[in-house]
Amino acid sequence: MTQTVGEPGPRTGSRTGAACTATYVFAVCRGGDPATLTGLPGQAAGNPVRLLPFGSLEAVVQDVSAAEFGEETLRERLTDRAELERCARAHHAVIAAVAGSAPTLPLPLATLYLGDERARAALREDERRFLAVLQRIAGRVEWGVKVYARREAPEGPDRSATVAPTRTLTRTATRTATRTAARTPVRTTAGSAAAGAGAVDSGAHSGRAYLERVRGARQERERRQQAGLVAAETVDRALRGVAVASRRLRTHDTTLTGERGVQLLNAAYLVADGHEREVAAAVAEVRADPACQGVEVEVTGPWVPYSFVDGGE
């Protein structure tokens, strides 16, 4: 009979909701090795991270203080950057440790039950779904690929990329463009031979020049956006070529990407374990592709297949 290793002795057992301890579930795995969990702080240093068998699988769990994970408290904690980071990294550390020895399905941060029995009962209902997903991700890892528009157009005299506060490019695109255009050295006025403008028409002249500058800046921006999208598609296609599945994640706001510029693609690829070289080759290829010269490609991985474990029917 499989016995959970690392149980905290007398405290384990049939606790109920009345207890002040909750069961935090990090992941579900098959054939996890309890030794990989030894010494992990998890979400409550002092309480061991342990395996909780249910059906033919195990949940990776830890006793935590229910008070610390109540809705309000959790909201507060996760609004604090340092605490958020600590929680996220602790969660990931456990998942990564388990995944080193067994196929592992990560659960999202802060999945909690009022005791082991509640957890076991709830998870057992999903056992078939878990098995299907485990089958799909076994022997596979996830690679993250992000594509950013380079902030400086290599060829252009358009200085908007350096002048404009990049942070606001997306959300207040129009306003920024207008401001930028006003500051951008005139390069569209050549044809604006409102030459005979004369003193009376100077207002009209500057107005027209202004409009042309705006139009020029807009066209340049559209051209670069278009090129960026083509590049992102090119990258995505190349990576899908080496992946068994792919998924688009939400792109990050420019506030988060900082000086890296506008994020054009944030995607995850499920790739056979051991195919790092293929991933690297695909990335090298797109980096050399003329269509991708205006973008930066950033790769992270290998990840436990976080992005490919939901919805597996």
Binding site: A22, E71, L105, P106, P108, T111, L112, Y113, L114, A122
Partner: peptide
């Protein structure tokens, strides 16, 4: 944003 979503008790 990812992971197997299951119904938990608390959050």
């Amino acid at each position: 944003a990812t992971g197997v979503v299951v119904s938990g008790d608390l959050v």
